[in-house]
């Protein structure tokens, strides 16, 4: 019960802060942790990302949604330094961080996970966790040779890692190779490991992809917990139903641009969003369209529908 109440208050705070904002793409937030301007990334002739302006509110769970190929993951890669922009600039906590290498971005407290889960297969679960801690003395080559210089710090790190493993219910797998975990457990491990960095902003790239429905609920719970612990969450997802439940604010991308923003239930009803997901003619029958524009168009719409996951 108490957990529920605190969750409500924290969620309420986030929702209240965002409640009166205009529902416009690129709207400014009262307390943004991340601000991006004119971010452009081209792959040859294709402009994968072309974001004019976007802000992410501190302490809230923001979802970045959009159909396949909208440029969400590319945008993520750009923000975290894993890919290089063609144009644009962005600030994190007021500091400009474009061109900063990914490891420095992570050390600043902006930590990401990956769409294709990246656990370190031939390291045990606990070693995966320990690796996440920053500022380890034993990670420098000379002090690493003398155990006494880092064993104390290693104990603290291990305690923190064990706490997180218990929270994520992975403590039974502590000594197993990460490569022996199931897909869902890997997602959990990756999320838990990212928390070892002590992040302020957690960026989750499709945390629910490939996870069975039972585990999805537990994963959603963990994402909500992050907000309770004072962290900001930005996550990519293309399944709108997942988003509705947990996010305080939704940013919609399509064809590289931000096309809509707002609270989840409003965004879902936005015609621009529905068009982007389902195609502009989704409420017409195929026969009507065929009459209007010919059979080729009908084929296109079938393709678009097939691409949307439920």
């Amino acid at each position: 019960m108490r957990a529920d109440q605190s969750m409500n208050t924290s969620r309420d705070a986030a929702v209240a802060a965002l409640a009166d904002l205009p529902r416009e793409p690129g709207v400014s937030k009262p307390d943004p942790i991340l601000i991006a301007d004119n971010v452009v990334r081209r792959f040859g002739g294709l402009t994968a990302v072309d974001v004019d302006h976007v802000e992410v509110q501190r302490g809230a769970i923001t979802a970045l949604i959009g159909p396949n190929g909208a440029g969400k993951t590319t945008f993520f890669n750009l923000l975290t330094g894993f890919d290089k922009v063609d144009e644009g600039e962005w600030t994190y906590n007021g500091k400009a961080i474009q061109g900063v290498p990914p490891y420095k971005v992570a050390r600043m407290g902006m930590v990401r996970t990956f769409q294709l889960t990246k656990v370190l297969t031939r390291l045990t679960v606990i070693e995966n966790m320990r690796l996440g801690a920053t500022g380890q003395r034993g990670e420098r080559v000379l002090p690493s040779v003398i155990r006494a210089l880092w064993s104390g710090q290693e104990r603290e790190i291990t305690e923190r890692a064990d706490d997180l493993l218990r929270r994520f219910k992975l403590d039974a797998k502590r000594e197993d190779f990460a490569g022996s975990l199931s897909g869902g457990q890997r997602k959990l491990l990756e999320m838990a490991r990212s928390l070892m960095v002590n992040p302020e902003l957690v960026m989750l790239d499709e945390p629910m992809a490939g996870v069975n429905p039972a585990l999805t609920q537990s994963l959603l719970g963990h994402v909500k917990d992050l907000r309770e612990l004072g962290m900001t969450v930005l996550f990519v997802e293309h399944d709108m139903d997942m988003v509705r439940d947990i996010s305080d604010w939704v940013i919609v991308m399509a064809q590289g641009k931000i096309i809509a923003e707002g609270p989840p239930h409003e965004v879902m009803a936005d015609t621009r969003v529905i068009d982007a997901y389902l195609g502009a003619h989704h409420d017409q029958s195929l026969a009507e369209i065929a009459e209007e524009e010919g059979l080729d168009v009908a084929g296109e719409i079938l393709d678009t529908d097939g691409g949307v996951q439920t």
Binding site: V119, L120, L123, R137, R140, V197
Partner: peptide
Amino acid sequence: FLLMRSPFGRVLRGIREDEDAVRSLGKNV
């Protein structure tokens, strides 16, 4: 032996498995 039982060795083994993951955890790969 001394290097590989240490956190330094752990980073190296992590890089062998997936260097982007190690990068995302704040290590200068």
